[in-house]
Amino acid sequence: MSSPSLTLESPTPAAARKRRLLEILGALAIAGTYIYLVLNQPADITGGPGSASALIALSGFLAGAVLLIVAVLPTLPVSTLVLIPVALVLNIVLGQFVGSTLVPFYLDAIGTVLIAVLAGPAAGAATGALSSIVWSFFNPTVLPFAAGAALIGCVAGLAARYGLFRRFYLAPVAGFLAGIIGGVVSAPIAAFVFGGTSGLATGAIVSAFRSMGDTLLAAITKQALISDPMDKAIVFTLVAVLVYALPRRTRQQFPFVGRHRVLAGAGQSKGLPAGRTTVRSTVHSTGQDS
């Protein structure tokens, strides 16, 4: 869609290297913070407010998320960039509704996963992180989960890249795996920053594990391992439904979809519910829009 400009200078290799460095630094900050928190298992968490670990978790994860945004955002094509606000709105509208109700799910990643499937892992990670940061304008409690959201976007993009959205039944499996990763990374945040969870239903599950004598981090990790994989399996399924319902013309706006043959072509969409989308998802040749 975008052609190289004839009057403006094109990005230099040095700028690309700098961005790659920022990406790696961001990933390292997130991974390093998680490893530090798990290895040290701060003992002060229930002895007093574990604020040293809360501060480390907050600053490490946030710095990583911001670095990822700074690295990825300038590289996205405009057609992807204008979709990010749409994704954010979908995350917020659906997540705000589910988050406080009596269901132990969040469903706050539909938009992120949608972008990841259409535009790839880097765009997915940036959308996840941006989503948390922009959403925190209405609900500051989602800000600390920016790193987890970025990870979900990245994993969803990788799943799409390696063809897990070509078969309808593989999407929930990919979601389940992404949920395990996301849940494990988000659990220390819930434990150290919030001292629990922010929802009622998830809180009830944590209470059940606490009553069996688990430590707070163990109880929250177990709750995350119950809620998150189910939640992400649902989200990935819903996104698969949505993506296959998009008209072919819309899907072709995204080079990532064509280049890696993310979606199934004709005759492979019979696993879809109600079969209404089979007409739309016709032949999909590779390289048509790169």
């Binding site: 749409v86 949608l114 819903l238 439904v241 949505l242 319902a245 706006q253 109600a274």
Partner: peptide, 26 residues
């Protein structure tokens, strides 16, 4: 799930469509 499709697909379709128009304008 079917009810979700009925509501979400028109919403997402119109949003994505509008985003495409905006992208061209921008």
């Amino acid at each position: 799930l079917a009810a979700f499709r009925w509501q979400a697909i028109p919403l997402v379709l119109s949003l994505v469509e509008e985003a495409g128009t905006r992208a061209a304008a921008l």
